[in-house]
């Protein structure tokens, strides 16, 4: 894949969130810097944050139009909640992601693990958006990049360590200008991040 020069690199510290504007035609590389780290990933229309990347709309499109799987597929677009193409998946060095489960939030840590004051992806997204002076009407469902949470034949999910190695990545092309937001998931109460919370990097590249 031939891409242009690096215009921005942003490292999102472990357990925190961050965002970057990716202009139409630019590329966004989401990198698992140290490996075994989930990035809860979101993409918004910066001019109207009620338009955002949507798994439920992409699944229907991929399943019925492109005969592609229910997660992301290299060479296929990802749609927003008005069914418009938003990002295009150019490369994926991993192939294991989740697009079915909600982000962790304070209730998850309290009810499921008895913890208060734990960082969570939902709050990370709200913090990341605040930097861009955006308050989303609600936090959409995430694309959980690098998350390894398959379900079995009975439909039961299980969280395993990600299979990612340091430097593994997904490369998107922006089909229109987006605000991409990532949270380096703070989940340390189960194997989701290998019990070691580490950073995620966003790299934005110009077209070749």
């Amino acid at each position: 894949m031939k891409i242009g020069k690096l215009v921005q690199r942003r490292e999102i510290p472990g357990a925190h969130g961050g965002g970057a504007i990716v202009k139409e035609g630019q590329y966004l590389k989401v990198i698992d810097v140290d490996g075994k780290q989930i990035c809860d990933f979101f993409s918004f229309n910066p001019a109207d944050p009620s338009e955002f990347l949507s798994g439920s709309h992409t699944r229907v499109f991929l399943g019925q139009t492109l005969e592609a799987p229910t997660t992301i597929a290299v060479g296929a677009p990802l749609l927003d909640n008005s069914r418009q193409p938003m990002l295009f998946v150019e490369e994926d060095s991993v192939g294991v992601h989740d697009w079915l489960l909600a982000s962790c939030d304070s209730v998850r840590y309290w009810a499921d693990y008895g913890l208060s004051n734990h960082r969570d992806c939902k709050t990370n997204v709200i913090e990341a958006l605040a930097e861009f002076h955006i308050r989303a009407p609600f936090v959409p469902d995430p694309l959980n990049l690098f998350q390894n949470s398959p379900y079995n034949e009975q439909g039961k999910f299980q969280l395993f360590e990600p299979i990612t190695k340091p430097g593994d990545y997904v490369l998107f092309r922006a089909l229109r200008t987006v605000l991409a937001v990532g949270s380096a998931c703070p989940q340390d109460q189960n194997p989701a991040n290998g019990y070691n919370i580490s950073p995620i990097a966003f790299e934005v590249y110009d077209p070749a």
Binding site: G55, L100, L101, A102, V107, Q154, G155, K156
Partner: peptide, 27 residues
């Protein structure tokens, strides 16, 4: 009502008699 929070809170793909469905505040 939120399918993704229902899946995550019940740990399963589908709803099942005897189990709750959750909203996007995970209630």
């Amino acid at each position: 009502l939120s399918p993704s929070h229902t899946r995550g809170s019940n740990g399963q793909l589908d709803m099942e008699p005897g189990k709750p469905l959750f909203n996007n505040a995970r209630q």
